[in-house]
């Protein structure tokens, strides 16, 4: 395999203190369609997703926006789709990057691993779809 096998930007995370409000603003002003909303298991974070061709915009925020607080958002992270996440993680670690172990993503059947260094200040993650069985968690 060449390199880490990255195929495209899978999603871009926009973090805020009110993901619903930010998603609504982007929907209204830019004509994006919010395809899905969900609560992240474990953390309770509120997520909203819009897709522009191959790239998903993920709007992420806390479980409960604070009433009356000014809504603030920032570009936060980039997730690259890879063909083989375990091989990609091994390769980045061989370069000295700090990379988390692949773990199940909120997307069924996908594994995700966070890249914590070697990205010039950009929080990165790698994702591989159809990596595990959504039902059993076993490798696909």
């Amino acid at each position: 395999m060449d390199g880490i096998g990255a195929t495209h930007i899978d999603h871009i995370v926009i973090a805020s203190n009110d993901s619903g409000a930010v998603a609504e603003t982007f929907q209204r002003n830019l004509g994006l369609e919010i395809k899905r909303t969900m609560t992240r298991p474990g953390t309770g974070a509120q997520l909203a997703f819009a897709k522009l061709q191959e790239v998903v915009l993920e709007f992420a925020g806390p479980p409960e926006p604070k009433p009356g607080e000014e809504v603030k958002a920032r570009l936060w992270g980039i997730v690259l789709a890879v063909r083989d996440i375990r091989a990609a993680v091994d390769r980045l670690r061989a370069f000295g990057c700090e990379v988390g172990d692949p773990k199940p993503a909120v997307q069924p059947g996908a594994l995700i691993a966070t890249v914590k260094s070697g990205t010039h200040g950009v929080p990165f993650a790698l994702i591989q779809y159809e990596a595990i069985s959504p039902a059993t968690g076993a490798p696909a």
């Binding site: 930010v22 958002a73 570009l75």
Partner: peptide, 8 residues
């Protein structure tokens, strides 16, 4: 300001 602080 149009996008809650995100540069577009």
């Amino acid at each position: 300001r149009s996008s809650h602080g995100v540069n577009l």
